[in-house]
């Protein structure tokens, strides 16, 4: 029994206005002619031009992308392995410690994770740079991946794997040909989550980055500490646009896949 009342309509309207207005305002002022962000002085795309000429930002963007691709890919491999261990490996010595190490980084404040990794890198004499950021991001991202993948593995019908083994597959073949295609959506969302977390991270990167490698969030943070800047508005607009297009495309694709699956099932019933 659902009744969509005026109260529900109002709270949704105000709620979504609260969620989206700040970002709409940010995008709007990125096209402002004036350097003063709060005074509208006419339409202009000059801040986008300034941004493209700003080598420091472009360099930082490249470092950020490299870190995000590398760390999310390694994290997806390690996280999927960890999920497999959590769901399938049964009992082994140190299992409690293992699941603790998977779940603890999810709730650990970034400042502590960053500080502890930095102390480790200094302790073993590893020079801080792009490698150390990748190591740090991989470590916390693999925990998120393993949570996403293990929630899919729990509901996975094991008899499919057993059938593959009975029909002569090696364990690795049965994983590659049966398990992986079925858990693929979860693995892909795990990768996407890891990728976004890495793009987004300021605190852990600040601790683990050296002078040789600066990521975009570090750059943005040091720029906005001093106040609002139109260049950062332009940069934010580009990032918001990419995410919006990405999320809408992904949801349309998954909708189409669902429709296609339903059609296939209907066709299978007819046949």
């Amino acid at each position: 029994m659902r009744r969509f009342s005026w109260f529900n309509a109002t709270s949704l309207t105000f709620g979504f206005a609260f969620l989206y207005l700040p970002m709409i305002i940010l995008v709007f002022y990125s096209f402002n002619e004036s350097k003063l962000v709060t005074v509208w002085a006419g339409f202009s795309t000059k801040w986008y031009g300034e941004l493209l000429r700003n080598d420091a930002f472009l360099d930082a963007a490249m470092v950020t992308l490299k870190v995000a691709v590398a760390s999310s890919t390694i994290a997806t491999v390690l996280g999927t392995m960890a999920a497999y261990v959590l769901v399938r490996a049964g009992r082994f010595t140190g299992r409690t410690v293992f699941s603790g190490m998977i779940y603890a980084p999810l709730v650990m404040p970034d400042v502590i994770t960053g500080l502890s990794l930095l102390l480790l890198f200094i302790g073993v004499g590893l020079d801080r740079g792009i490698t150390t950021i990748i190591l740090a991001h991989t470590t916390f991202a693999m925990c998120y991946v393993s949570v996403v993948v293990s929630s899919r593995l729990v509901t996975f019908d094991r008899s499919l794997e057993e059938a593959a083994l009975d029909l002569g597959c090696t364990p690795f073949e049965s994983f590659r040909l049966v398990t992986l295609p079925i858990i693929a959506p979860a693995v892909i969302s795990g990768w996407l989550l890891a990728f976004t977390l890495s793009l987004d991270d300021l605190v852990i990167a600040s601790f683990t980055a050296g002078p040789s490698a600066t990521t975009l969030p570090i750059k943005i943070f040091s720029a906005v500490r001093l106040g609002v800047s139109p260049e950062i508005n332009a940069l934010s607009t580009i990032m918001i646009a990419i995410v919006t297009v990405g999320v809408i495309t992904a949801s349309l694709m998954s909708k189409r896949a669902a429709v296609k699956r339903a059609e296939d099932e209907r066709a299978a019933v007819r046949a």
Partner: peptide, 24 residues
């Protein structure tokens, strides 16, 4: 659902920053 999740995929730093211009 998508409207609630969308902000989660956008940068945390940018979402905090967007309030700096509003609350100044």
């Amino acid at each position: 659902m998508m409207l609630v999740i969308l902000p989660f995929w956008t940068s945390f730093l940018i979402r905090v920053y967007s309030w700096m211009g509003i609350l100044a």
